[in-house]
Amino acid sequence: MMPKQNILDDAKLADQFQDHIDADEKIEPKDWMPDKYRNTHIRQISQHAHSEIVGMLPEGNWIGRAPTLRRKVALLAKVQDEAGHGLYLYSAAETLGISREEMIDQLHTGKAKYSSIFNYPTLSWADIGAIGWLVDGAAIINQVMLTRTSFGPYARAMVRICKEESFHQRQGYEIMLTLCRGTNVQKEMAQDALNRWWWPSLMMFGPRDNESPHTEQSMKWKIKRKTNDELRQQFIDNTAPQADFLGITIPDPDLKWNESRKHYDFGEIDWDEFWTVVKGNGPMNKERLDARKKAWKEGTWVREAALAYASNKVH
């Protein structure tokens, strides 16, 4: 009898759960939730956290070479913000019953993914501008949507994070603007960075809707409120006029304002490249993961010492 009773209860709970979501009420960690909802969130929030942490590496690559003291301080602070985002997000995921160590282990073993954009190299100072402008810009579009996601801790983390991300984006754009108003060499540097970061930035929104199997369930649970293609279009519509203002050219011959759609039309993304990077064979996948594993491994004795000292003091 018991199992049947449980199934009935679960069905009732699931209905109530969906009612909450339909009424736009937040789900909190102690509330009942379907296992699949819990696991989807653990996966998504931890991957988001990993992206923040791995994302520190490409920009960290230019801290030592920042051209002025002002730029150096701004870049250091920006990369530090990303570490803070990682912290909030790991904490949000922990409310669902997974530890930070487990999540980090999943990153290191490759079980958990992170955003593929960070598997591209930063080759010039202009990349720091381009990343702020395009990568943080794309992240914001996704994250603004997530401030209204159904899971309370995730939504609240996003509110804090979005404020900082929009600052990062303005800062990145300002770097690009300075370069584009500078010498020819600087402008070339800016154009080259746009050429290299444009398409990977569009890929940040994920596969096209008809190839995105999770979208329907995610919309129903209000994890997502817009589809990948809608978000990508929004990003392009925002960004194209900004490139015009800079006076540099988006590397897409098909990019054109479509008056009847009131949107920009754009060319085809290289989906082979997208999947190649997702599968681990991008230009920097190995180096990024190795750097994270190395930091964690070399930090082991430090973490152990801190724990031992704390418990020595108590006893």
Binding site: I53, I63, G64, Q80, G84
Partner: peptide, 18 residues
Amino acid sequence: SELCGHGPTLETDIALTN
């Protein structure tokens, strides 16, 4: 600043960057 992104824990990473 060379350690930013490479600290033994996130908290320590943030503190060293501070």
